[in-house]
Each structure stands twice: as C-alpha cells, then as structure tokens.
Computed example of a mutant assay.
Amino acid sequence: MSETLSGQHILVTGGGSGIARAAAERYHREGAKVTVLNRSAGGAHAVAESSGGAIRALVGDATDAGVLRDAIAAAADAEGRLHNITCGVGVFDNYAKVSELSSEELLTAAEEVWRVNVRSTLLAVNLAVPALRAAGGSVTLTLSESAFNAIGGGVLYGSSKWALRGIVDHLAAELAPEIRVNGVAPGGTGGTRFGGLSTLGQTMTADRVEGRDERIAAHTLLGFTATPEDHSGAYRFLADPVDARVVTGVVIRTDGGRRL
C-alpha cells in the first residue's frame, strides 16, 4: 500500500457514495485517517464496512452547522488539526427547465440546490478553517463539467457548480498562504446515483439509464465513460501536501476531454 498521505487527517462530506466515496477510499489506501460524513446511514455504513472499519463513518446532514462542527472535531487529530476537507455533497436537478417551472417551484428548487451544493460547502470551510490553518491544510471542492459548459444538468444544477468554480478562486485568495483551495470537475460518470430535488418531488436518479454510458463516451475525446475511481487520483494529488504544495486556485477537469 502506498503511504503518500500517511499521517493526514481528512474529512469527506457526502463520502458514502459515488465520486466522494471513491475519493475517501483512495485517501485511505494512501495512508490517511479518513472520516466520512453522509446523510444516508446505508451509505455511511457501507463505506465503513468496505474498509474494515478503518474509515470512520458519521451519519448526518452536511448542511447543518452543528453536525459539521462535530464531524470536523471527530476527523481532526489529537491536536485539533485537519489536513484536508473534501466537499462532495450535492443534489441534482434532473435537467429541470426554469422556463417550465412555476415561480413557486423555481424559488423552492433554487433554494434547495444552493443550500446543498453551495451553502453547505461555504459552511464546511467556514467551520473547518481553524483546524485547517493549524495543519497548513487544504480544501478540495467537487464541481462538475457543468461548471464549464451547459451540459450535465439543468440551469439550477449548472449555476451552483459555476458558483463553486468562483468559490475556488476567491477562497484560494482569502485563505492563502496557510490553506490551499482547489477543485475537481468530473465529467459524466457511470456507477453513480444522484439525489434529486425533494422540493420538486424528484427521486434518486438511476446510475444506468439506457444508452447513458454510450452517450457519455461518444462525447469525450478519450472515448470511454469514467467510473468514480477514475476521478480519485485528482483528489489524492490535490490533498497531497508535497506533490501539490504549490497548487492552489486550480480546478482539475476529469471529464475525458469533453467535447460539445
């Protein structure tokens, strides 16, 4: 087992499934002490079980300040230091069209998307700053190909990911030189499930609708559909205090060379 992250204490929000889970498991394989915060008890227990209990799994809502505060304290080392926080919480809009929503639906859906995708990230960083500063640590945000092009979601989802793209730049400037801030922008990925907007009565989106993987592959330069594990190397690199020592304000696009 490689130990490039040996001694690092890392918290992953939304780490019970999909790309965030793959990042958490990669951190663990690289020697980090990993804590996952996940709203679904099933997801939390699954990642803990798959690691033989080595990954600590907490059940809770990452949009709640009290839950986040407790998770940060649990993830930090004995001296209260947190070396990285990876924000992987997100909700998908199932391509909802602003022009087809009532004004009431739009307002409630927009509030949900921004609360989960944007405000939870800002809150997590806000609460983690003292522990990150003590460690000279880093922040890794999860964006999307939707942060660069009008693909991979509707206006609500896409605009939240564009916001996170701006947050990477602004937080990198604000928190330098003690804390590095970067992001990963995955493209379409197989083997994942999205949480839909509860305010619109959306259910979980299946990871495999007919022809989805083929459509994703056809629109990438590399010609294949990524798995969650394919993105984990970018997360590992950005969390590494040696390899990524001079990297901040950067978004790595792990989209297979997405083309329009």
Rank of each mutant, 00 (worst) to 15 (best):
I167T: 15
I179D: 09
T189W: 14
G201V: 10
G195D: 14
D213L: 10
M204G: 00
D169P: 00
G187I: 02
I167E: 14
G196T: 09
L175C: 09
H231F: 07
L175W: 12
L156D: 10
G223V: 14
E229G: 01
L197D: 08
I216G: 03
D213S: 08
L222Q: 12
G233T: 08
R165C: 05
A163S: 15
D169F: 05
A218I: 00
G183I: 04
S198W: 01
A206N: 04
R208T: 11
T189E: 09
V181I: 07
G166Q: 13
T225P: 03
V184S: 05
G190E: 15
L164T: 06
P228M: 11
D213H: 11
G187A: 13
R165W: 13
G195C: 01
M204I: 14
E174D: 15
R193L: 10
K161Q: 05
D207H: 01
L175R: 14
N182C: 08
G188L: 02
T203N: 04
L221R: 04
E174N: 07
D207P: 02
G183H: 02
T192L: 02
E174Y: 10
T225N: 11
A173M: 11
A173V: 15
T203H: 06
R212P: 00
T192D: 06
T220F: 02
L156Y: 10
A234W: 00
D213E: 15
A173F: 02
V209K: 09
G211W: 04
D213C: 00
R165N: 12
G196L: 13
I179H: 05
E229T: 08
L222E: 12
D213R: 04
A234E: 01
T199L: 05
A234C: 07
T189C: 09
M204T: 15
G166L: 12
D207Q: 02
H170S: 15
R212Y: 15
A185Y: 00
T192W: 01
I179Y: 05
G187Y: 02
R212S: 09
A217G: 08
T203I: 01
G188M: 03
L171F: 14
H170F: 08
F194G: 02
E210R: 13
T199S: 15
I179F: 07
R212V: 06
I167A: 13
K161V: 12
G187C: 06
A217W: 04
E214N: 05
T203K: 10
P228R: 08
R212A: 13
T225L: 02
P228C: 10
G201F: 12
G196F: 08
K161C: 06
P186F: 04
L171S: 03
D207M: 01
G166S: 12
